[in-house]
């Protein structure tokens, strides 16, 4: 079954800038898809469209047009891990993880103790248990990223959309995030993430989508799509693939 199906999706901003032109590909249920492209290629716009932020009739979610879903219905199926979040109020870590429970609450409801349990387990999963009463404004960059992931885990959605999940992380936190996302994928979550880190993509993804200037350059299994030639075309700079201990490295 396809989680997402995009059929000639185009998008032009009200300012007149065309960000996407006739992009078509599918995201299979249970797959892990990396979205690669240079800055300004349309990656963020594409993520926004999959989230439903800009309504598009050419996208289906589990076989139904995305536009036919209610907001909360989408929230129960698709969770977003933003690139970062600016915190203006000092919510506690538990408060923040609890925000992920919102799609399950009635319009006048606040979370129950049961929701708190799920949020706590999400914090536990990313290694932030024990800090649940701390203020989110006191977090380091790595913890910040883990907290964003915890909120999405608490959302218990089938699909995770991630916007450059490793862009602000040091190598240790990058590895931690990678192994967490691998675990989530193994447990059946569908992942769709944009990244500039080709090696991260190659480690985590089963499939890859290449986007260049708003057009689809290639989409398919990573072994077929990630080649030195394709990456060179994508980034317009020479890229190489090397093999070490059975792993491929791009540089």
């Amino acid at each position: 079954m396809n989680a997402f199906e995009l059929n000639e999706v185009s998008f032009t901003y009200p300012s007149g800038t065309t960000a996407l032109r006739e992009v078509s590909f599918t995201v299979k249920e249970g797959s892990s898809v990396a979205l690669l492209g240079a800055n300004g290629a349309g990656k963020s716009t594409l993520l926004d469209l999959l989230l439903g932020l800009h309504p598009s009739r050419s996208i289906t979610l589990y076989g139904r047009p995305l536009t036919s879903y209610g907001r909360k219905e989408v929230g129960r199926l698709v969770a977003l891990v933003p690139q970062s979040e600016q915190f203006n109020f000092s919510f506690t870590l538990l408060d923040y993880a609890l925000f992920g429970r919102s799609p399950y609450l009635g319009s006048m409801q606040s979370p129950s103790a049961f929701d708190a349990q799920i949020a706590y387990e999400a914090l536990e999963e990313v290694g932030l248990a024990g800090y649940e009463s701390r203020a989110i404004t006191s977090l380091s960059g790595g913890e910040h990223q883990l907290l964003l992931l915890a909120r999405a885990i608490a959302q218990q959605s089938r699909i995770l959309l991630l916007d450059e999940p490793t862009s602000a992380l040091d190598p240790a936190n990058r590895r931690r995030t990678l192994s967490l996302l691998k675990q989530l994928h193994t447990r059946g979550k569908t992942l769709f993430f944009s990244t500039h880190d080709v090696n991260f993509a190659s480690e985590l993804a089963t499939d890859v989508v290449l986007l260049k200037e708003g057009r689809l350059l290639a989409a398919g299994p990573k072994e077929e799509v990630i080649t030195a030639q394709a990456l060179t075309t994508l980034y317009e700079t020479p890229m190489y693939v090397a093999q070490t201990n059975g792993h491929s490295f791009m540089y």
């Binding site: 926004d48 989230l51 439903g52 932020l53 907001r71 909360k72 989408v74 929230g75 129960r76 698709v78 969770a79 977003l80 933003p82 979040e85 600016q86 925000f99 992920g100 919102s102 799609p103 909120r151 959302q155 959309l161």
Partner: peptide, 10 residues
Amino acid sequence: LAEKSSFSVG
């Protein structure tokens, strides 16, 4: 929260 975040939780 940022608009994208609040939108994404329904």
